[in-house]
């Protein structure tokens, strides 16, 4: 096909899908709300495939989605080892340790107004820093295996969770605290029965931010040295060999792992903070 005809095909697919979405989005209800983004995503994939094939884009620049899909099927065992190494061993263990430590620290400094006033600005400041840069140091300290990745993740998730938890522990208002005092509740009872539950929306906000950070930390730390497996290792070596279909396969796995991880934490949040206004049934089409 000539270049102009190819361009025509691509444009026709685009316009057709857009027209379908424009019609669909006028309708209300649950089905269009799921269908429209699905059509949009599929259209992007089809356009990608068409562009690569019709214009003969070389595979070392952009492999078509079909080749990436085939690669995922072929290299399922490699992808699984990498997933276990990076996500389960590195990201997940670091996430649990880091978030746990941040929660305990927040409860510990909660009794001291002085510490809170001092730690909050410092924590907020550190949370905005490029902490991923500590990766080379931690790789030197903890070796190439997953322990150093977990350590990077601990450092990355600690401060966002800490800052959110400290803010959350202050969320119960004076009236409610007074009620606890009139009940003669001890500090521990007030913490368990009032302040921790009241803090949950804030804590989960931190925990959700931390899911993405955990995966980023585990992957980027592997760029600084790793055993011969792991998602970051595979991405950096496959890029060097111009095996871009494998790179895209790893990215697809990372994307799915990231969304599922986030979704799982969000699901726990819905269970724990069912009482909060943000979790009440939404009506209308604004997803969120």
């Amino acid at each position: 096909m000539s270049g102009a005809a190819s361009l025509g095909v691509v444009l026709a697919v685009w316009l057709g899908a857009w027209w379908a979405n424009a019609r669909l989005s006028a309708a209300r209800g649950r089905v269009p709300r799921l269908l429209v983004p699905a059509i949009f995503g599929l259209t992007l994939l089809v356009l990608w495939e068409l562009t690569v094939r019709l214009f003969g884009v070389p595979g070392v620049i952009l492999p078509p989605p079909s080749a990436i899909g085939a690669r995922i099927a072929d290299s399922a065992d490699i992808l699984w080892t990498d997933f276990v190494q990076t996500f389960v061993k590195g990201a997940l263990s670091g996430y649990v340790i880091g978030c746990g430590a941040a929660l305990l620290t927040a409860v510990a400094i909660d009794r001291s107004a002085f510490l809170k006033r001092g730690l909050l600005p410092v924590g907020n400041f550190i949370a905005a820093l490029p902490i991923v840069g500590t990766a080379p140091i931690l790789v030197m300290w903890f070796g190439f295996d997953w322990q150093s990745k977990a350590a990077v993740v601990v450092v990355m998730v600690f401060f966002p969770v800490l800052v959110n938890t400290v803010a959350g522990l202050a969320a119960a208002d004076a009236m409610q605290r007074d009620l606890m005092r009139t009940y003669g509740a001890s500090w521990g009872q007030a913490l368990i029965k009032l302040r921790l539950p009241a803090a949950m929306p804030f804590i989960f906000n931190g925990l959700k931010i931390a899911t993405t950070l955990a995966l980023i930390g585990a992957i980027v730390a592997e760029f600084f040295g790793s055993p011969t497996r792991g998602m970051g290792f595979r991405i950096s070596t496959a890029v060097g060999q111009l095996a871009l279909d494998l790179v895209w396969a790893e990215i697809a796995v990372a994307a799915v792992a990231g969304s599922v991880f986030y979704g799982a934490v969000a699901a726990v949040e819905r269970g724990v903070t069912f009482w909060h206004p943000s979790q009440r049934k939404r009506n209308g089409s604004r997803g969120g």
């Binding site: 709300r33 429209v36 983004p37 970051g232 969304s259 986030y262 997803g287």
Partner: peptide, 20 residues
């Protein structure tokens, strides 16, 4: 149409490690 097509993907993209 743009809202319903793009917005879910924009939000979902925040949960994936784009840096990879």
């Amino acid at each position: 149409a743009m809202d319903m097509s793009v917005m879910p993907w924009a939000i979902a993209s925040q949960t994936i490690p784009i840096l990879a």
